[in-house]
Amino acid sequence: MFYPNSPQTSPQLTQIPYGQQYAMMQRQIQQPYHPFATTEPQARLYPYHYQGPIQQEQGGFITQQSTAASPQYVQMRVTPVDQSIMSGYPNQTANGSSSSSFNYNIHPQQQQQQQQQQQQLRHHAMPVGSVPLQDDRYRKQLIVNYLAPDVTSTDLHELFSRFGELDGARIIYDKQTNMSKGYGFVYFCHAEDAKEAVERMSGYEFHGKWLKVGYSTNPLNIVPSNSSPYVHAGSRGAAG
């Protein structure tokens, strides 16, 4: 039997160049792979992502010199942007860049009308829970959420009447099932009393439920100042 490094198959040491006398086997001759043993700084910083320098080929596509990437890492192929796409944008300079302001050559009167329309939209648009300043009635009506099913309009009136005089209180019921929808409205005579009720009743436990109280901004629920107070009856038909 002959071994790869046996004296019968191995040459004389004098015939082997210096430095390879003890590297006779194939696994010894093959050098191990060192990912950080390279002179390129990109490979030292990113050993798993770097795959060699990027070269520009004919046709405008950018390719990489090395083989496919590892399945664990996804390499994105980048193509140059066609400058003709950006030619339609206004205020574009000769080098292809555009300024931040756009001039669509709008007539001054049209621009003024658009600004007025935007101001009107901001004036009428009102986020949930906010209180408008032009109508004091919005500051007097509250919406009470997360009410228990057994709470009546009379219970709601008695709960909030300790903060001040009320114009009314009612629970909203479903017309088909005649069941409470879980929320109601309270109408105060003074805005200061309503503000105190919002601050003190939010998070209050009532009939096993934690109440959420806020201003009601729905104009359909506003009680006119010259109208008669609501009837605080315990029956659902009268309260709904």
Rank of each mutant, 00 (worst) to 15 (best):
P4W: 07
N5E: 13
N5F: 06
S6G: 12
S10G: 09
P11Q: 09
Q12S: 04
L13I: 02
T14P: 08
Q15W: 04
I16S: 08
Y18D: 10
Y18I: 05
Y18N: 03
A23Y: 08
A23M: 01
A23W: 13
M24W: 00
M25P: 10
Q26H: 13
R27T: 09
R27M: 15
Q28D: 14
Q30H: 01
Q31A: 07
Q31K: 04
Q31V: 12
H34Q: 15
P35Y: 15
A37C: 07
A37Y: 00
T39V: 15
Q42H: 08
Q42V: 03
R44L: 13
R44N: 04
Y46S: 13
Q51V: 13
G52F: 10
I54R: 02
I54N: 10
Q56N: 03
E57F: 08
E57G: 07
Q58L: 09
Q58F: 15
F61C: 12
F61E: 04
Q64I: 14
Q64Y: 13
Q65H: 09
A68P: 03
A69F: 10
S70T: 02
P71I: 11
V74Q: 14
M76E: 05
M76H: 08
R77K: 00
V78F: 12
V78Y: 14
V81W: 10
M86R: 08
M86K: 01
S87R: 11
Y89K: 14
N91K: 07
Q92V: 11
T93S: 11
T93M: 06
A94R: 07
N95C: 11
G96C: 05
S99Y: 03
S99C: 08
S100H: 13
S101R: 02
F102R: 08
N103Q: 03
N105F: 13
H107I: 15
P108W: 15
P108N: 02
Q109S: 11
Q110H: 01
Q112I: 04
Q112E: 06
Q114I: 08
Q115A: 11
Q117I: 11
Q117G: 02
Q117T: 12
Q119G: 04
Q120V: 02
L121K: 00
H123S: 01
H124W: 15
H124L: 09
H124P: 01
H124F: 01
A125F: 13
M126K: 01
M126C: 12
M126I: 04
V128D: 03
P132W: 13
L133R: 01
Q134A: 07
R137W: 02
Q141E: 00
L142C: 15
I143Q: 08
V144S: 09
Y146H: 00
L147C: 00
D150P: 07
D150Y: 13
L156K: 04
H157P: 08
E158C: 15
E158L: 08
F163Q: 01
G164F: 02
G164D: 05
G164Y: 07
E165S: 11
D167E: 04
A169I: 03
A169D: 13
A169S: 04
R170H: 05
R170T: 12
I172C: 01
I172L: 04
I172Y: 03
Y173H: 05
T177D: 01
T177H: 15
N178F: 14
M179Y: 14
S180G: 03
K181E: 00
G182R: 13
G182W: 10
G184L: 10
F185W: 10
V186T: 01
Y187H: 00
F188S: 07
F188Q: 01
C189Q: 06
C189W: 13
A191P: 02
A191N: 06
E192F: 06
E192D: 01
D193C: 02
A194M: 09
A194W: 08
E196D: 08
A197P: 08
M201P: 10
S202F: 04
F206S: 04
G208T: 05
G208M: 05
G208A: 03
V213K: 10
G214A: 05
S216C: 01
T217K: 04
P219F: 06
P219D: 11
S227N: 12
S227F: 04
S228E: 15
V231C: 14
H232W: 00
G234W: 12
S235W: 00
G237R: 05
A238D: 06
